[in-house]
């Protein structure tokens, strides 16, 4: 039997997956990462995309969509902290501004740039989601 690595995929609002896998393929910031057991410790941010896992005794790969997040690799454990929210620096900033505005009630003409950043991030997420669906569909 091949070596396996324990995988935990969690989002802030619930646990998505927990179990062992032979290989984990995740969409890293700098391109796809394939993680085998006994990988050296690694910490990276993820882009929105699909996490694929090859499970032992199963021909099919398991696919889970994540909208970005953090990937931590320890030699025998892979932890994926998935984001629930669509994020981006501009968007976070927008949210901060919103909370501030509620307190200060003073903010003008920010809507335009805000909407643009939001649309852009949503588009990126929608594209990634579509790619996942496409991949799943091709298999059926």
């Amino acid at each position: 039997m091949a070596m396996t690595i324990h995988v935990d995929i969690v989002s802030a609002e619930k646990a998505l997956y927990s179990g062992s896998a032979e290989v984990v393929i995740a969409p890293g910031q700098r391109g796809e990462l394939g993680i085998h057991p006994r990988h050296t410790p690694l910490l990276t941010t993820l882009k929105p995309g699909t996490v694929r896992m090859k499970l032992p005794d199963q021909a099919e790969e398991v696919m889970i969509y994540v909208s970005g997040g953090i990937l931590e690799v320890q030699p025998h454990v892979v932890t994926i902290l998935s984001d629930t929210a669509i994020r981006g620096n501009d968007l976070d900033e927008a949210k901060a501004l919103e909370a501030k505005r509620a307190a200060e009630d003073a903010m003008k003409n920010r809507e335009a740039s805000l909407d643009y950043a939001k649309a852009q991030a949503e588009l990126a997420e929608a594209i990634a989601q579509l790619a996942t669906i496409e991949k799943l569909r091709r298999r059926i």
């Binding site: 802030a12 929210a85 976070d92 949210k95 901060a96 919103e98 307190a103």
Partner: peptide
């Protein structure tokens, strides 16, 4: 000195809505 506020969370808290006020403090 209230620098940020968030009301109307409802019964299901969303991380998304919390990012704003937290970011102000972190900044």
């Amino acid at each position: 000195n209230v620098v940020s506020q968030l009301t109307g969370i409802g019964d299901t808290p969303r991380l998304e809505t919390l990012i704003g006020p937290v970011k102000i403090m972190l900044d």
